[in-house]
Computed example of a mutant assay.
Amino acid sequence: MELLPASFFRQPALTLAEDLLGCELIKETEEGTASGYIVETEVYIGAVDKAAHSYNYKRTKRTEVMFGEAGHAYTYVMHTHCLVNVVAGEVGEPEAILIRAVEPVRGIDLMYKRRGDKKEKELTSGPGKLTKALGIVKNDYGHPYGEPPLYIAKGFTPEHISTGPRIGIDNSEEARDFPWRFWVTGNRFVSR
């Protein structure tokens, strides 16, 4: 397994969101290691994006990591689910990529234990599902992706990538139509 260097993450979020597709997201816990290939992402750019927590450079305790170095985890809880993002771009410019879905790779039995009696397709086909399956928690906030227990490694290069509007942000005016969602075309683990 080849971990991604810190330099990989220092690119604009719209570029990094596509480059993350096919990479392996890995989480080590006391229960074991679980991982999946990233197959769906969404971009949030605070400077211009009314759907971003950091819109108009809003700096709070929760968004602070978005203003820091690229390649760190931005985790938060929404509707009882922990969601995980990758900070991108330049220091001071709040950009992050939500990981929306992964294709299970390692620790699949552990994923079933954490998620219950689900169909394989349901294990990781959504942002809250994948964090539960992999064991990613809010305390992973700020962790650099280049080292255990939460890290990203090289995976595969997708043949085709699709783009479209993001999901679940209907109250964000014109930002709801930004084509900032990316997914591996035809992958059955994409959220919808």
Rank of each mutant, 00 (worst) to 15 (best):
V86Q: 02
R62T: 00
Y37L: 10
F8D: 00
A175M: 09
V77S: 15
F182T: 13
K138M: 12
I161D: 03
I152M: 06
R176W: 10
T29Q: 02
T33K: 03
N139D: 15
P144M: 09
A6S: 07
T60K: 02
G186A: 11
G22Y: 12
Y74I: 00
L110D: 11
L14A: 15
E103P: 04
P148D: 13
E30V: 12
K129A: 15
F178K: 07
F182L: 05
P104M: 13
Y145H: 11
P94F: 02
I108K: 04
N187C: 14
I136L: 12
T41L: 08
V137T: 03
Y44P: 05
K27E: 00
E95S: 12
L130D: 06
P165C: 11
P144T: 14
F182S: 10
E40I: 13
F182Y: 12
L20Q: 02
E18T: 04
K58S: 04
E31D: 00
G71M: 03
P149M: 02
P179E: 06
I169C: 08
F189D: 04
E24N: 06
G146N: 13
G92F: 02
G71P: 09
T60N: 06
K154W: 13
Y151L: 09
W180P: 05
E122H: 15
V77Y: 14
E24H: 05
E173V: 13
A88Y: 01
F67G: 05
W183R: 04
G164A: 11
H81P: 12
R176A: 09
E159Q: 02
Y37R: 14
E95V: 02
Y44S: 00
Y44L: 01
G22A: 05
P165W: 12
T41Q: 14
V65K: 11
G36Y: 07
E31L: 15
